[in-house]
Every structure is written in structure tokens, then in C-alpha cells.
């Protein structure tokens, strides 16, 4: 990575895979992200994404096992923030399914993290090695999304079907 012509600073944090460390991870990312003059909304979004992504890595990826680690890397490249979160659970899943179902799902809680990550970040990639690791690679570029001015699709999760799908109940 260091061979590239673009100058990059790489910061790394390794924590045990427990939800207890979520605040530490968020502080770590936010501190590095503050090197780029992200807007308050963007900073909030980054925090939200780290929240979701770390929870997935620690909870679903590593079953919150203290013996496993989660590695978080943050890279600043100009006005780009690259976040890489790697867990060692090695349990592949189908992010596309979760992203799509989040749109249509009206039951239960959770399962919308991936959709939120995809909405907010400019680049998202999952790297699965079954039985070994899952690496989530994300990029946020400053100023690419401007929800206040409606330049991008709304992050609000839409209802998947018309409300009248459920027949009215005559009383």
C-alpha cells in the first residue's frame, strides 16, 4: 500500500471482539476522521456506520468472543476516509440479501445495518474467507452526498409495499 504515489496515513486499532469496545472504536475513527473537514452530518453518519459495522463484526462475526479480535484500520487519503473492519469469525453471509430485505422488511428489529452502510458510504466491499475472516472495506469521500439539498436518495427506509395490501378490516 505504501508504494502508491498518493500519500496515505494508516492507523490501526485492535480490540477484543466485544460490544463493550464499540465506544473506543468510534472514538478512534472519529478522531482520525476529524483530520478531514467533514460536515457535522457526515461525521454523524460515519459514527453511525462504524456503530453498525463494528456491531456486525463483533456480534455476528465473532459472537462477542473475547478470545477473538476485531482489527480496525483507518486511512486518510486527501478528502477520503477509508475504514477497514476485519473480524476473524470467518462466517460469510449474503450482504446483498440483507440490504434488499431491509427495504421490504416490516417485521422484527435489526437487519438494516448493511443498508445504512451502503446508503452512507461511497464505496463498500466485503471480503469473505470462509472459516477465517470477514473484511469490510468502506470509503467516505467528503461532500459527495447532500441530503439537505435532496441531491441523493433519501436515507429513510421506504415501505416495501402499498399499505392497502393489507385489506381493511370492516368493523
Amino acid at each position: 500500500m505504501e508504494q502508491s504515489s498518493v500519500k496515505r496515513q494508516i492507523h490501526e486499532l485492535k480490540v477484543p471482539a466485544t460490544l463493550k469496545h464499540i465506544e473506543q472504536v468510534k472514538r478512534f475513527v472519529v478522531e482520525i476522521a476529524s483530520q478531514i473537514s467533514f460536515s457535522p452530518i457526515e461525521m454523524f453518519q460515519i459514527e453511525l456506520v462504524v456503530d453498525e459495522a463494528y456491531a456486525n463484526a463483533a456480534d455476528h462475526g465473532s459472537e462477542c468472543s473475547r478470545s477473538k479480535e476485531v482489527h480496525v484500520k483507518c486511512i486518510v487519503e486527501g478528502e477520503k476516509l477509508i475504514i477497514i473492519i476485519k473480524d476473524f469469525g470467518g462466517k460469510p453471509f449474503n450482504p446483498d440479501f440483507f440490504e434488499r430485505i431491509a427495504d421490504k422488511k416490516t417485521w422484527g428489529v435489526g437487519g438494516r445495518g448493511i443498508k445504512i452502510i451502503k446508503e452512507i458510504m461511497d464505496e463498500v466491499m466485503y471480503f469473505f474467507v470462509t472459516g477465517q475472516s470477514t473484511t469490510l472495506y468502506m470509503v467516505k469521500q467528503k461532500g459527495t452526498q447532500d441530503w439537505e439539498n435532496g441531491e441523493t436518495s433519501s436515507p429513510v427506509i421506504k415501505l416495501p409495499f402499498a399499505l392497502d395490501d393489507i385489506p381493511p378490516i370492516p368493523t
Binding site: P92, N94, P95, E99, K118, D122, V124, V129, T130
Partner: peptide, 11 residues
């Protein structure tokens, strides 16, 4: 020697 999956979600 390894098999692995890549999901390039965005863009």
C-alpha cells in the same frame, strides 16, 4: 491456496 468471496456492493 484459498477460496474467497468478494461482494463489491458499491459502486
Amino acid at each position: 491456496d484459498t477460496t474467497f468471496d468478494l461482494v463489491l456492493m458499491k459502486p
